[in-house]
Simulated scan of single mutants.
Amino acid sequence: MSGLSGQAIVITGGETGIGRAVVLQLAAEGAHVLIGGILADEADATRRAAEGLPGSVVFQKADVRETAQVDSLVDTAVEKHGRIDGLVCNAGIFDGFASGIDTSDRLWDQIMDVNARGTFFACRAALRHMVPAGRGKIVNVASIGGLVGMADGASYTASKHAVIGLTRHLGCSYAKYGIAVNAVCPGAIETPIRSNSIKILGEDAPPMGGVGADPDWLKRAVPQQRKGTPDEIANMILFLLSDKATYMAGQSFVVDGGWTAK
């Protein structure tokens, strides 16, 4: 992928799933990747998987719900490399398809804090360095749940709509500074988001069943009749980080096997 070798990229939630795929692809391209997250064991496995690749992978514990930790994460990349070329906001947790009535106050707050506030905190931290530099790429991982009303639960849907709205605003506001802010909207992807969400939410975690537990739902919902892979989402993210995506701002790119095209 053109132009990524030697670039300094920060990714939140890069420990597993889509995030891990992005980290490994970036490292294969020769980028220097700083993972920010709270799953230390999973991050270590990702770092070890990247050993021998041209780029470098480092982990720093950072809870995206904490402004100071997010600021420190971005500052670390700038201190080490003199700049931040790209940011991928991938940290996210799932609500188990909880309906409006079944969404507790705590579940709502936790989902919004990680998915929406955390994305904003990271974008703001990166923009503080990118604006003076006059360049940078930000990719927010949203969801088709940010585009339609019935793909996920109430809090997750609201949080991902917020991410898309934030992407549009930042993409339009900072394009004149040479900064591209865009989003990717995955559909049904084979990741450990449910188990990770249970770890992070603890006693606030709802049951993680719902539509995804029905083995026939893919045939009804997704024209390709399969879940996507993390690498298929990572492919789009790397494209948006690359110098091939030079005239895109504030857009949300869907990768969902045709789900929302029906």
Score class of each variant (00 low, 15 high):
residue 96 G to N: 08
residue 100 G to L: 14
residue 84 I to T: 09
residue 66 E to R: 13
residue 72 S to C: 09
residue 105 D to L: 12
residue 71 D to P: 01
residue 57 V to Y: 00
residue 88 V to W: 02
residue 122 A to L: 07
residue 137 K to S: 14
residue 147 L to C: 08
residue 148 V to Q: 06
residue 85 D to C: 08
residue 121 F to G: 04
residue 142 A to K: 05
residue 141 V to N: 13
residue 83 R to G: 08
residue 146 G to H: 01
residue 87 L to F: 01
residue 164 I to W: 00
residue 52 G to M: 11
residue 110 Q to L: 14
residue 77 A to S: 14
residue 162 A to Q: 12
residue 137 K to T: 06
residue 95 D to I: 05
residue 114 V to I: 15
residue 129 H to K: 13
residue 91 A to Y: 03
residue 99 S to V: 13
residue 163 V to W: 06
residue 74 V to Y: 00
residue 122 A to D: 10
residue 108 W to R: 12
residue 91 A to L: 12
residue 160 K to P: 01
residue 160 K to Y: 06
residue 101 I to P: 04
residue 144 I to G: 00
residue 98 A to N: 11
residue 56 S to P: 04
residue 68 A to K: 14
residue 56 S to F: 01
residue 146 G to Y: 03
residue 85 D to F: 02
residue 147 L to D: 05
residue 95 D to K: 07
residue 117 R to H: 13
residue 95 D to M: 12
residue 55 G to P: 08
residue 92 G to A: 15
residue 116 A to H: 02
residue 53 L to W: 10
residue 91 A to T: 04
residue 90 N to T: 03
residue 141 V to A: 07
residue 76 T to F: 07
residue 80 K to C: 03
residue 85 D to P: 09
residue 86 G to N: 07
residue 98 A to M: 11
residue 82 G to E: 14
residue 139 V to I: 07
residue 72 S to M: 09
residue 53 L to R: 12
residue 78 V to Q: 08
residue 75 D to C: 01
residue 138 I to E: 00
residue 70 V to L: 05
residue 90 N to L: 04
residue 150 M to R: 13
residue 58 V to N: 01
residue 134 G to V: 13
